[in-house]
């Protein structure tokens, strides 16, 4: 199948690739870029496990073709933490027990990042709404909500403005 050239930034690195036009962004990220932290749960846009940040927005990477990411800035879960440690949202998920099997977690983290970038001090209802497009079968959501609330507080206290970049 004919391939198309794309260039994009992923987790701060500029990359180029040739991809078949029909390749899903989720498959491209997982299997071509070898960033396995983006998970595929349903491949029909409902579960949200494959959420990644594209140009500042949390998007379903299973509903996007890789070619559509040409020129985009992509952040996956691998780009959230640094050598210095976990991102405050990841840290909060750890402290508040916001994950069990962890499969939905990267998508939840992306939703949380998008929310806190727009609304650094969300109410619990804001948080529920922000993650209502992400299915989790383990936690019953309560500890995820606690984690996002707690992450917001930690980030406000540390004066972290742009949650879409690694800190």
């Amino acid at each position: 199948m004919m391939k198309t050239a794309i260039s994009f930034t992923v987790n701060g690195r500029t990359r180029e690739a040739f991809v078949p036009p029909r390749m899903l962004l989720s498959d491209f990220i997982r299997h071509e870029l070898e960033l396995p932290g983006t998970h595929v749960g349903c491949e029909h846009g409902v579960c949200g496990s494959c959420n990644v940040i594209v140009d500042g927005k949390a998007v379903r990477s299973c509903l996007m073709f890789a070619v559509q990411a040409d020129g985009s800035d992509i952040t996956t879960v691998e780009g959230y933490s640094t050598d210095a440690g976990l991102h405050p949202i990841q840290q909060a998920f750890w402290e508040e027990h916001g994950l069990q099997c962890g499969f939905c977690t990267p998508g939840m983290l992306a939703a949380a990042k998008e929310l806190l970038a727009a609304n650094p001090d969300p109410s619990d209802e804001d948080i529920r709404e922000a993650i209502s497009g992400n299915l989790c079968r383990c936690t019953g959501y309560e500890f995820i909500i606690n984690a996002i609330r707690s992450a917001g507080k930690a980030m406000r206290e540390a004066d972290i403005q742009n949650t879409l970049q690694p800190v």
Partner: peptide, 10 residues
């Protein structure tokens, strides 16, 4: 268990 899972390395 969590740090490796939270960073996408599960």
């Amino acid at each position: 268990e969590d740090p490796r899972i939270l960073t996408g390395n599960g």
